[in-house]
Design a protein around this nucleic acid. Structure first.
Lengths: 159, 159
DNA sequence: CCAAACATGTGTCACAATACAACAATTGAC
DNA sequence: GTCAATTGTTGTATTGTGACACATGTTTGG
């Protein structure tokens, strides 16, 4: 019966909660190099820019982060002051301001990713190679299933 | 050779990064019910209290969150004002203040967990039952391996 | 019993995030 | 070519985090 099917997924979801916490711990830890340099909301700007690989308009960034445009202006001010992003004029439309990553900003993102990868590796080293392979497969099928959900706004949560 | 072993874990770590992001998206989304009610740092206090199931001393909470004791006092003030936690005297030692969850505070934590579980379930429903079972197993072995890391301060990151 | 060590709370400060309203500049539509 | 819509920015205000120094009350060890 369909109850049993749904029950399977529901049970699985419950069983996976501790794992989601363990994963979050890794992610949270990977953010620690930011300490003092960049705040988490600021870092999200850097991640979105790094992912998109092109200059973005201020308003689009605000929409992506779901904040008021004026909020984004102030955050961008701080990131410019720290040399992590740069504003540039859009030749096509002079009322728009484009924002792009400075090399230092990309470094910040890469440092965090590297740290996360390192911490994950340490944990994975503690598994048998069979468990490890199964884990990689499982995470990939999870990623596929999650992507099928296709809430595009969540794609850019790369913390 | 050990190079190959380590390489396996390193490759696996890289392969798993997108999955960690997908998981983070789920977690971040589960936090949305907090909007306007509680901030993320405040929520972490609630989670620690909910996990420990007993009243904790103010200083211990500050240590668990890695913030200055005075910072915790102010955060606790706000949570008390919102009726989510309660301060109580410790009969054993009158200089210590104990902090414990109010029912409303526990509700907040449960709401977030429920939401996360629901979102996970939706994703898991999209997998075959074989994939789902493999995913549960894999997450459990990951949790075990991560716990063996035993950085106690990370245990309480239950966001 | 007294002094040192300890736990919490207050006063004060700095700074980030965030929103709203008002404004300036620019573009596009008719 | 004028006028309305769009885009970014500034002024202003609120709230939360966080730290430090200091005050107050409380144990505890001599």
């Amino acid at each position: 019966m369909s109850d049993r099917e749904v029950g399977g997924a529901a049970e699985a979801a419950a069983a996976v909660i501790p794992g989601s916490r363990a994963m979050l711990a890794v992610i949270a830890r990977s953010l620690s190099p930011l300490h003092g340099q960049v705040t988490v909301p600021q870092f999200r700007i850097l991640v979105i820019l790094a992912d998109s690989n092109v200059a973005l308009r201020s308003g689009d960034l605000a929409k992506a982060l779901d904040v008021h445009p004026s909020t984004l202006v102030r955050m961008a001010d701080r990131l410019v002051a720290r040399g992590l992003i740069r504003r540039s004029e859009n030749s096509a439309s002079r009322r728009e301001t484009l924002i792009e990553l400075e090399p230092a900003g990309l470094d910040v993102v890469r440092t965090v990713t590297r740290r996360r990868q390192r911490d994950l590796r340490r944990i994975l080293e503690r598994m048998t190679s069979g468990e490890r392979a199964a884990f990689v497969d499982a995470m990939q099928s999870f990623t596929r299933a999650a992507a099928a959900d296709a809430d595009a706004d969540l794609t850019s949560f790369g913390l």
